[in-house]
Structure formats: C-alpha cells, structure tokens
Amino acid sequence: MLTLQFIPYAEIQGLSSGRRTKKLLDAAKQNKIVLLQGRLTKQEEADLIQKTMEQIDDKFKGIELSVIAPGNMDGAWHEKVKQQLLSLLMGDREGFTIIGPATIVKEIRKDPHKIQLLMKDKRKR
C-alpha cells in the first residue's frame, strides 16, 4: 500500500531547520510520499540532500525531491515585494514540496505546466 502524507506548513513552522529536514526524511524512510505545504529554504534543501546521503545504505537508496513554486514571480515589482514580505512574515508556505523514497518514486518530472510522479515497478523494488 502506498501512503501519501500531507504535512501542512504549520506543522513545520516552529521547527528548527535540522528538525524540519529530519521530519521529512524520517517520513520518506518509512516509505511514505510526503506532500509538504510550502517549501524549505535553499540551505535546508541542501541540508536535506546531505542528510539523505549520510543515511543511504542497502535498503534506503535516497529520495526524489521536487518543489513546485508559485509562478507569479514574473509579475510586477509590487507583486514580488508583496510575496517576499509575506514569505518573511508567514514563512515559505507558497507552493508544495514533494518528497518520496527513491525505492518507490523513480522520477518526478516537472515543467512549468505539469508534474509527473513516475513510480518504480513493484517487482523491481
């Protein structure tokens, strides 16, 4: 059975960077596909990759990660300022982050208009 876990931004808002990435990685290691409201900072994304690498072994092969950012950053300057102010005050709750274990999610294909989660053939896992 495939589990999709939704994590609202409020659930990670008060956590330190280290605990945020740990929470996401722990869920992926339990073979869950995580749908996080909002996004990590770029530094946290890099930390998540580092922590993932530290934990790779014969069973855990890593993660597939994709961030779907809002597409309104090409708008007028006052829209960009508004977005950045909101991010500063409320956190990066715009968009979604998808994280799945590499043993289940083969690839996340993304272009500006669509996202495709390609799953691994169960017999090959």
């Binding site: 900072t41 770029k42 530094q43 994304e45 890099a46 990759i49 990660l65 994709s66 961030v67 996340i108 294909r109 993304k110 272009d111």
Partner: peptide, 17 residues
C-alpha cells in the same frame, strides 16, 4: 537532459543565496 530537475534548482538556488 531535463533541466528542471530539483538538483539543478537546488544547486543554483544555493549559489544565488
């Protein structure tokens, strides 16, 4: 290859930051 991979975006985002 697909340029929209998250690794590419994370690398470039970290350099930008």
């Amino acid at each position: 290859a697909d340029p929209y991979s998250q690794v590419n975006i994370t690398i470039i985002g970290n350099l930008q930051a």
